[in-house]
């Protein structure tokens, strides 16, 4: 079991190497001169050439890649050209915020999706099914930025029920222990700050997650219907097992497996989709960092964020695969 999971992790290494190569190569194709960008507009050609040599940009691309890869592996992502700070530090501040937002969105998508899937399964072949279909189709067809704007309009402006910018109420200071805001506020015992942070996350997390719920509902409903055709469900009924136990103890355990795999794939999309939502809600995460970096052609940040995105998605996929292996004895390779 563990060996199988480790083998699964090992398969990630070549993918990462390939992505780093593509990332580096693609950014080198852009007509951008990082040396010129890093100097004040008044700098002379000689000064820029000196900077280029100092940055190693005059050396062959393969050597540049090797240097970059070596530094990256050591955790040194270089300095931001625009903000003149180490990229590693910027990532350490913004990545936890994005992870918190994505996780919250995934929890919302998961709760809505699994609950809705069970509900739709209960409604199968009844009149309510068409209504549920329409609602979920509508949920799916709105893009996340439209959801974001709609939620701001309804809950932020019309009802003034929830905040929609930043992460905390004005005047609150954020405690820093692990950089994960929700965790830190609890660690230092500031429940009021924790709740403020939660209130600030509801709208962006909902906007990000809601469109991912309907596919979960549909897959869960479909695989529950398939599972109910299986012999072991009938055999359990013939043993006198009650319908509730059949659903929770037999059918769901099997039907959840394809649903989990789907959620793993979705989380990757969701993590990438956080960019727009972060911008709309002025949420200080990796998305905003990325948008600024692209605007300023800040190559070290773009490279580092791109690579981080890839690592997170691969980690999630591997994690979900591990979870599915844990839940499905047939995959445990015995």
């Amino acid at each position: 079991m563990l060996a199988a999971f480790l083998r699964r992790l090992l398969a990630v290494a070549p993918i990462l190497a390939l992505v780093s190569l593509l990332l580096f190569g693609a950014l080198r194709l852009l007509p951008i001169d990082p040396a010129a960008m890093s100097m004040p507009p008044t700098a002379t050609k000689v000064e820029i050439e000196a900077a280029r040599q100092a940055m190693g940009l005059d050396r062959p691309v393969t050597v540049q890649y090797a240097i970059w890869l070596g530094q990256t592996l050591r955790g040194d992502f270089g300095n931001s050209i625009h903000m003149r700070r180490p990229v590693a530090g910027l990532l350490a501040e913004t990545l936890p915020a994005t992870i918190e937002l994505s996780l919250a969105a995934m929890v919302i998508a998961g709760l809505l999706g699994l609950g809705g899937g069970l509900g739709m399964f209960a409604l199968r072949d009844r009149r309510g099914e068409a209504v549920a279909e329409t609602v979920t189709t509508l949920m799916m067809s709105l893009p996340e930025f439209l959801w974001a704007l709609l939620l701001i309009f309804v809950f932020g402006v019309l009802l003034s029920a929830l905040p929609f910018t930043g992460r905390l109420d004005p005047g609150m200071t954020r405690p820093v222990v692990t950089q994960f805001l929700l965790l830190d506020t609890l660690l230092v015992g500031r429940v009021d700050v924790f709740f403020s942070a939660v209130r600030h996350m509801i709208l962006p997390a909902f906007a990000l997650g809601v469109a991912f719920a309907p596919p979960i509902m549909r897959v869960l409903r479909a695989s529950l219907i398939d599972t109910y055709q299986e012999d072991y469900i009938r055999q359990a009924r013939l043993r006198g097992v009650g319908e509730t136990r059949i659903l929770l103890g037999h059918a769901l355990q099997n039907a959840i497996l394809p649903t989990l795999t789907l959620m793993g794939v979705q989380f990757g999309f969701l993590f990438g989709g956080s960019l727009l939502v972060e911008v709309i809600y002025s949420y200080p995460g990796m998305g905003n960092l990325m948008v600024d970096a692209v605007r300023n052609a800040d190559l070290p940040i773009i490279q580092a964020v791109g690579l981080t995105y890839c690592v997170v998605v691969l980690a999630i996929t591997a994690g979900v695969d591990g979870l599915v292996m844990l839940l499905n004895p047939r995959l445990r390779g015995t």
Partner: peptide, 23 residues
Amino acid sequence: QNLLGRQIGFIPQEPLSALNPVR
């Protein structure tokens, strides 16, 4: 339902698929 599995037992045709694979 109370009788099933207690006083009336059933033996199925396809044994391999009549047991829950994940339990």
